[in-house]
């Protein structure tokens, strides 16, 4: 099976506190630690497991700047066979549709049976996978937490819905899936693994390689634009307990006794 997995380089929220920058034009990017989007890492693991079961190749692909090469390499160290970087200044500021159209152009240059994306990335949109499927006229299933290869024409997939229930579906290949976390246990990537793939060449394709007219993507081609970043004022918020740990603990115990939190 020829599998393509879309991966994005994002600020790692487990490692950073995300704050708005001085003029509200962006988050503050100084000293941010980046990593592969959590959902995408599960998608790559799933792709590798499917390939190891039924044969084929796994290609990882990202739209981003030169730094995105590092996440492609990390996913190759995990076991992906190939990486492709789609990079052009014209891509900056693309909305979900723009990103999906860039990815579509590359998908059409190959022949893939299965395309995977993460259920969502840092902006919490969850849009690129479904948009790509629609552009390619392929069937789509989102929030997938179970994949079973039935034969070379069909998969059985589970979608995780409300309450943790799993909605089972048959889906014809080729198709697009967006992957939910928890579907597998992504393997650990050590520094040695990264070193092994350090010299593998990652092709970079720009707008003209992909036959994309620059005015259809990037800020210029986007109907959806972020105007500014801010921290909302949501009223009072919590009463913050301050003082030494001992003082805080004492106060907390009092409060919990009053609220029935200590039996």
């Amino acid at each position: 099976m020829e599998i393509l997995v879309c991966v994005k380089r994002v600020p790692d929220t487990a490692e950073n506190e995300i704050e708005v920058n001085n003029d509200g034009s962006d988050i503050s990017r100084d000293d941010l630690v980046y990593s592969v989007n959590e959902w995408d890492n599960y998608a790559v693991e799933e792709a590798i497991q499917i390939r190891d079961n039924v044969g084929g190749t796994v290609t990882v692909i990202s739209v981003g700047d030169d730094d995105s090469e590092e996440v492609l390499r990390r996913e190759m160290a995990m076991g992906a066979d190939k990486g492709i970087l789609l990079s052009d200044d014209a891509f900056n500021g693309s909305d979900g549709k723009g990103l999906a159209s860039i990815l579509k152009a590359e998908v059409e240059k190959g022949k893939y049976d299965l395309i995977m994306a993460g259920a969502q990335a840092d902006a919490g949109a969850g849009q690129v996978g479904g948009m790509l499927a629609a552009m390619l006229d392929l069937p789509y299933a989102s929030l997938v937490n179970k994949v079973e290869v039935v034969d070379d024409k069909k998969l059985k997939v589970g979608r995780e819905v409300e309450g943790g229930n799993v909605e089972m579906n048959d889906i014809e290949l080729p198709c697009v899936l967006s992957i939910q976390t928890g579907i597998n246990e992504p393997r650990y990537v050590g520094i040695r693994g990264i070193r092994k793939v350090a010299s593998v060449e990652i092709p970079v394709h720009n707008a003209s390689d992909l036959g994309i007219s620059p005015d259809t993507v990037g800020g210029a081609g986007s109907r959806v634009k972020v105007l500014d970043y801010f921290v909302p004022d949501l009223g009072e918020g919590a009463e913050m307990l301050e003082g030494s740990t001992e003082e805080i603990v004492e106060k907390l115990v009092e409060l919990l006794k009053a609220k029935g939190g200590i039996k």
Binding site: I18, G124, D228, F230, V231, P232
Partner: peptide
Amino acid sequence: KLVRQEYSGQVSTHVSCD
């Protein structure tokens, strides 16, 4: 014009949509 959140609610954005 609308409001969304990013990074699991750590920041909000104003967004324009044509």
